[in-house]
Write a protein that binds this DNA or RNA. Structure first.
Length: 439
RNA sequence: GCCCUGGUAGUAUAGUCCGGUCUAGUAUGAGCGGCUGUCGCCCGCUCGACCCGGGUUCAAAUCCCGGCCAGGGCGCCA
């Protein structure tokens, strides 16, 4: 089929912007065919654009022959443009319809489509991800990523207001000896290199020049996780702040979480409705529990976690039943955290590291960092890491490294919470996991 | 990586336990026809599927073995 040229047609209104008061006005609407209902002498084409839908009504006895032919050729998901006149009517839910003067077919769709774009027949997540671009045409997908946009905008606004400078650190790094998560290796000309799992060391180094920095970007972990809350490429929201401690950055974090929740409630009413989800804006300060308090709480629930260990999934699930919103867990055992988290001065077996939880899911973690070079080297050795591999990082400590603290939010996890989705893949446009590298 | 569950038209499902009634049912979709106010329109006709390989049996969608794939859980996740 020949498709039409866009020519000088430009959208005059999104579907949603058309109101009964505009009766008689000429419009150009552009979008896609969501649905077609043909009653014989009259054909209803539901045109969908980013903002909603509008009905295009074609009367077989009144419309131009060309328009009728175009309307007859349409199928679901065809891209189309309609130049027409708004008609006020009692017979549509919106109180308006568009009577076409001219229809342009701007893009065609191969049928059968791999999933039902009207969402009446559900599809499994695997089918949906295989046809992700089409899946994202559904209301739900659009809603999730518009919420994400508002979240990111709100974060950038608040962090900027607080004096943080947005930075970008390398994704390609030389050393795989940081310990912790497994890294993906890449060929870098004639050297072996790795994809960064976090901006941690770079953002710390930047505190000695820019003082307060934040970074939002993707990072990579080569873990063979197989759960609804892990992907191998994820978006991290990181901050690092000079002359600050755990408590200072926790304050920033809880203010940010509250601000984001408020922003969504204000600006994403329709999206939340589509997602059938409500957001409770948390009160600040958030509840703060020490690791020891959490262990005691679990003990009451007959779950025994030995002091020093990270919380197993089952324990986290139990905490989810006991806590219904965001909360902090502080004073983790030093042995359970990584080398750069600072032990407490009064009791070095505990550290100044914290996690931000939402019910049973870990959303963010952070803490005061070690900023004494000698002690950092000692900590590296204690964790079986070779200080030589960190020589560029350690160099920064020769140039007046300030005391500093920071945190990292798993944006995708936060998005699960904010949109009420149960699988992280729903809130990632093109997820990468152990078994999926495409599309 | 380990454990559990599953794989039937484009999509979502019934049937599988207890083999034969399955020429595999239903919804949606797609094709054709009819219908001038639908909004999950309606009505009629048509199209389209048992993951792959092996085995048991007179007979396998159904039972057994292997593979592949998927979902969920656990572990891993500085």
């Amino acid at each position: 089929m020949e498709i039409d040229r866009l020519g000088n047609w430009r959208r005059t209104h999104y579907s949603r912007e058309i109101t009964p008061e505009m009766d008689g006005e000429a419009v150009v609407v552009l979008g896609w065919v969501r649905d077609i209902r043909d009653l014989g002498g009259i054909r209803f084409v539901i045109l969908q654009d980013r903002e909603g839908t509008v009905q295009v009504t074609i009367h077989r006895d009144k419309a131009k022959r060309e328009s009728i032919e175009k309307a007859d050729a349409l199928q679901r998901q065809y891209s189309l443009g309609v130049k027409g006149v708004i008609k006020k009517t009692e017979m549509t839910p919106r109180g308006i319809e568009v009577i076409p003067e001219e229809i342009k077919i701007l893009g065609i769709a191969q049928h059968p489509l791999p999933l039902d774009i009207t969402s009446r027949i559900p599809a499994e997540i695997d089918v949906r991800l295989d046809a992700r671009v089409l899946d994202l045409c559904r209301d739900e997908g659009r809603a999730i990523f518009r919420v994400q946009h508002v979240v990111l905008e709100a974060m950038r606004m608040l962090l900027s207001k607080e004096g943080f400078v947005e930075v970008h650190t390398p994704r390609i790094i030389a050393s795989a000896t940081e310990g912790g998560a497994a890294l993906f290796s890449v060929e870098y000309f004639d050297q072996e290199a790795f994809l960064a799992q976090s901006p941690q060391l770079y953002k710390e180094q930047l505190t000695l020049s820019l003082e307060k920095v934040f970074e939002i970007g993707p990072f990579f972990r080569a873990e063979e996780s197989h759960t609804r809350r892990h992907v191998n490429e994820f978006i991290s929201v990181d901050i690092e702040q000079a002359f600050a401690t755990e408590v200072d950055v926790m304050n920033v974090l809880e203010e940010l979480i509250q601000h984001v929740c408020e922003a969504i409630n204000e600006r994403c009413r329709r999206e939340l409705e589509v997602l059938k989800h409500q957001i409770e804006v948390p009160e600040v300060p958030l509840e703060r529990f020490t690791y020891r308090e959490i262990l005691e709480e679990l003990e009451q629930e007959q779950i025994h976690v030995p002091w020093g260990e990270d919380l197993p999934t089952q324990a986290c699930r139990k905490l989810g039943n006991l806590h219904s919103n965001f909360y902090f867990i502080t004073e983790w055992p030093t042995e359970s955290k990584t080398f750069y988290i600072k032990p407490r001065d009064d009791n070095p077996t505990s550290c100044e590291g914290f996690d931000l939880m939402w019910r049973w899911v870990e959303i963010a973690s952070g803490g005061t960092r070690v900023h004494s070079k000698e002690f950092l080297i000692q900590r590296l050795r204690e964790q079986g890491l070779n200080p030589e591999s960190f020589k560029y990082h350690l160099k920064a400590f020769d140039y007046g490294m300030p005391p500093h603290a920071g945190w990292a939010i798993g944006l995708d996890r936060l998005m699960m919470v904010l949109t009420g989705r149960k699988n992280i893949r729903e809130v990632v446009l093109f997820p990468r996991d152990r078994f999926r590298l495409t599309p």
